[in-house]
């Protein structure tokens, strides 16, 4: 069978189309390997910007972004809440995409109304906007008063804090004689 030039180029075109369709050279697969950081940040600051402006910011000494979470060392976060600015810091934090933030070791949460909470671990649910110490002990301070307990839950929207197994020391004014 004589193969003339038109047939040759037609065949060539078909082969190329087939190659593009199957091999997909235009696409690059992101390496979704668990445990392998995709991006590293050093001494960084990130902002959460909404139509109302900057609503939250986070500073961290070092951060590694993995496929489905981010690990931050010495995070410091500030968030504008209906009740004022709230800040939280810890030794490390794990940010799970669009779910929550787990803060570990030397966790310190400070609210604009004066409540300060220290604990070893706290979880912040991004959807419900609720902090919990998940059964672990915490210490809360308000003025000179101190409250110790377990299983603290802080609902950011309502501003309500609740907890269990409580022991509190309330410091009073001097007597009025």
């Amino acid at each position: 069978m004589d193969l003339n030039v038109k047939h040759f180029f037609g065949l060539l075109f078909l082969l190329m189309a087939g190659a593009i369709f199957w091999l997909k050279p235009h696409k690059v697969d992101v390496v979704k390997k668990k445990g392998v950081p995709q991006v590293a940040f050093i001494d960084f600051q990130s902002y959460e910007i909404t139509p109302n402006g900057v609503e939250a910011l986070m500073h961290g000494e070092r951060a590694l972004k993995f496929a489905d979470y981010m690990h931050v060392e010495l995070p410091e976060m500030k968030r504008l809440t209906p009740k004022g600015v709230e800040s939280v810091k810890a030794k490390e934090a794990f940010l799970y995409d669009r779910e929550g933030i787990e803060l570990k070791e030397r966790v310190h949460l400070a609210r604009s109304d004066g409540w300060e909470i220290t604990t070893d671990r706290i979880y912040y649910d991004l959807k419900k906007k609720v902090y919990t110490t998940k059964g672990l002990p915490f210490t809360a301070r308000y003025g000179k008063s101190v409250v110790e307990g377990k299983s603290m839950v802080y609902e950011q929207k309502s501003g309500k804090i609740s907890a269990e197994s409580i022991r509190a020391i309330i410091n009073e004014e001097d007597r009025i004689n």
Binding site: A140, K144, S158, K160, A163, I166, R167, N171
Partner: peptide
Amino acid sequence: ASEQVEITADRFEASETE
């Protein structure tokens, strides 16, 4: 000197607004 009150309880709730 200011005086101290010690309270123990099963549960505790603090409300910001009130």
